[in-house]
Structures are given as structure tokens and as C-alpha cells.
Design a protein around this nucleic acid. Structure first.
Length: 168
DNA sequence: GAATAGATCCGC
DNA sequence: CGGATCTATTCA
């Protein structure tokens, strides 16, 4: 059973927390989500959408459950899933994945590289796409919250969710 | 048109 | 701690 749009329409912080332990599936690869970060609205200085809609961040203003993948630092891609209702910009960055073979991908750039995710997979509806979605597992990892990584503004917000014991 | 910072990662 | 590597956004 894949996660439906109603899941991603929940408050972004809830989605970020509840995604821990769920299984991200892309084509022939999958893994349990072990780390996420929330980016929320116009008053979050670290969000790409803080200063309004641009061609790059437009997906963040669309319906929940869509993929938002952007290119960064000249060589990496980062995967997000859009949250909240249409016209409100928010998303959850997927930062960590535990593969079936036990290998742990920590970091959004490595994760996208390993799965083969790039710009062309941005803007897709993950609630209907047959080979790009999140599968419900009901695992619910224990987690801690910390400031988000790699940002210089909004470091007072504990919007990073990191699984402690990615087993079960 | 030019300048610059960036939701990263790796190697020294 | 610095280098790789390039683009979206901002500013003039």
C-alpha cells in the first residue's frame, strides 16, 4: 500500500517525522527512509520558496505528494516530497536511506546518485506513478530532532528528523 | 550580463 | 579544511 496524497497533506513536520521507516521505491531500487528535513512556507529562510515562486521551486507550490528534485553544488541532486495544500510551499527533504542489503546512504546527494534520481524525475506525482512512490511499512523508527544540515539561516529550528535505530 | 551563494561530498 | 563543479537567483 503506497502512501496517498492525504498522508502528504498533513502538517509538514508530521510528514517529515512519519516518513521515517517508510519505504522509498524508485524503479528497481528501494530503501527505508532514515533521515528527513522539513522546509515550510514563506517564513522559513532556508526554504527555496521563502522568497516566493520561481521556475525552480514551482513544484513546491503544487499539490502534495509530488517529487521536487533540484541540482546543487554543481554535482548533486536532492530529493524532496511536496507537502501541504496547493499554493502553500513546503516539502520534506529525504536525507537518508537504509537499503535492503544493509547499506546506509546518508546524505541527499549520495542517495540520489545511488538511486539514479536526477532532474528529469522532478515534478512527478508519487501517489500515482507506478515506479516512483513511498510504500507504507508501519515501522515508525525512534528519532531525534536537530537543526537542519548545510543551511545558514533557520538554524534555530529543529526540523531535521534522524532515526536512532533503523531496525525493526 | 555578471556576480555569487548554495538543503553536498570527498579527500587531505 | 578546501576543492570540485554549475546553475538559479539576484543585482546592475
Amino acid at each position: 500500500m503506497r502512501l496517498q496524497r492525504s498522508f502528504f497533506e498533513q502538517p509538514t513536520l508530521d510528514v517529515a517525522q512519519k516518513l521515517l521507516g517508510q519505504r522509498l521505491v524508485f524503479q528497481d531500487k528501494s530503501g527505508l527512509i532514515t533521515e528527513t528535513e522539513a522546509y515550510f512556507g514563506f517564513n522559513d529562510p532556508a526554504s527555496h520558496a521563502a522568497r516566493g515562486k520561481t521556475p525552480r521551486n514551482a513544484v513546491m507550490f503544487g499539490p502534495a505528494g509530488f517529487s521536487y528534485i533540484y541540482f546543487i553544488y554543481g554535482m548533486y541532486f536532492c530529493l524532496n516530497v511536496v507537502t501541504e495544500k496547493e499554493n502553500f510551499p513546503a516539502a520534506v527533504l529525504i536525507r537518508g536511506l537504509l537499503l535492503p542489503d544493509g547499506m546506509h546512504l546518508n546524505g541527499p546527494g549520495k542517495l540520489c546518485r545511488a538511486l539514479g534520481l536526477s532532474k528529469e524525475w522532478s515534478g512527478l506525482d508519487m501517489t500515482v506513478n507506478s515506479d516512483f512512490y513511498v510504500e507504507e511499512t508501519k515501522k515508525g523508527f525512534k528519532y531525534i530532532t536537530t537543526p537542519r544540515i548545510g543551511i545558514k539561516q533557520g538554524t534555530d529550528l529543529l526540523w531535521r528528523f534522524c532515526a536512532i535505530n533503523p531496525i525493526n
